[in-house]
Design a protein around this nucleic acid. Structure first.
Lengths: 219, 219
DNA sequence: AATCAATAAATTGTATACAATCTTTGGACA
DNA sequence: TGTCCAAAGATTGTATACAATTTATTGATT
């Protein structure tokens, strides 16, 4: 039997998904009551979900006013990506020296899945796998605090950046994510610590600079 | 007039303080109802505070069971300190190249306050100033995500590590924090980027190793 | 027409009652 | 005596009513 989820968790997932799918836009006001009617549950679990998203930087919760979908500035977006460089490459440095064949096979499988999702134009699946690739080193590090932070920042990035209209129309050979992830995988496989750290940095900064030219698409 | 705080915020502060002062011990179970009676408010704001502390790693909230004061293993404590090294030295690298005289003066003032608090054996004040010293570079970095993370990890450290029985009895010349902070200040003043990063790393790892020998005092 | 104050409306903040779920206890049965 | 099941107890999860606070509206006054 599939585990019965609490409403609080459901509410969190639904609102997050709404932001990712751009049904809720940055800066938009969202009231507890509205969500409560929309997904048919009381304000109590909605409220808890709002608070959690506030902590994670997805919503801006203003006392007695309401919640607003976070509307990051260019600087804040850059800040998050630079922090991701620091944390994700730190995770890589911890992990690369002791990767096993199993780890490499799993990483290869992730890359293959990502490719399949891309070719099938399955956007949500693509994003899911992308997240798994980026958090995998942190997961292997067994530092739960590091992992949690990397996951939160990845999710934040997903909500505000990766979802481009052009995603569906760019020809596959121009998608830089896939070769850049391949580059990370190679260093990972070879036990090349600095190579992995550099590949992560290059990939994240490349993603950032690609996106910053297209900010008008989002706001 | 002093701003009227929401009960939710009050509950958060009170429970956190109870953990810091070791009135609530690691591993101890804490129920919403008990806190609710203890500080005389309904379960609603308590519950919100619990969730927040769960996100920050101060409580472990188990569905339908209750909340437990987090009881970190040696490894988890080390993990947090190593993460602090990464983040606090990253903040220093960002900030040191552009410190102003004003920044230096403020940092000097913090060190002086810390010394006063120590000599007055004012523990809570000492901890407060210690926190300000460690978060100052992140504050100057103007990366709010970095700052929030550094603050959360500092607070976590405070709750689980720094509060030693011996604090009151150690002779002042043996307290390594103060000279180590002085070392950080010197690099900060001189614009010595790597010196600052190294001083931070040395200080945090020294604190960690001092404490890990004394774990029996806590658990 | 502009400004300000008072009042109404909207929304979050809190309290409380009840439901769902987990844990423990007690006893029947092998 | 040990094991399993059922029922009771304890605690969180959710719904709802009401209070507090902020924002919007209205109208009087200049």
């Amino acid at each position: 039997m599939t585990t019965k989820k609490r409403n609080e968790e459901l509410a969190y997932e639904k609102v997050k998904r709404a932001i990712m799918l751009r049904r809720l836009l940055p800066g938009q006001r969202v009231t507890e009551e509205w969500v409560s009617e929309e997904i048919n549950m009381s304000r109590t679990p909605i409220r808890a979900a709002f608070k959690r998203m506030g902590n994670e930087g997805l919503l801006e919760v203003v006392p007695h006013r309401g919640a607003f979908v976070y509307n990051p500035s260019d600087k804040e977006i850059a800040d998050v990506f630079q922090l991701r460089v620091v944390l994700e490459s730190y995770a890589a440095r911890l992990v690369v020296p002791k990767v096993t064949q199993e780890n490499v096979r799993y990483m290869e499988e992730l890359l293959a899945e990502e490719m399949r999702a891309y070719q099938a134009k399955d956007f949500e699946e693509f994003m899911r796998v992308n997240g798994l690739i980026h958090t995998y080193p942190a997961k292997l590090s067994e530092n739960k605090f590091l992992l949690q932070q990397v996951e939160t920042l990845n999710q934040w990035s997903d909500c505000y950046l990766i979802l481009k209209d052009e995603f569906y129309t760019v020809p596959i050979e121009k998608v830089k994510s896939i070769p850049e992830h391949q580059c990370m995988l190679n260093a990972f496989r070879d036990g090349n610590i600095e190579g992995m750290a550099e590949a992560i940095e290059a990939h994240l900064l490349s993603t950032l600079s690609d996106l910053s030219g297209k900010r008008s698409v989002f706001n």
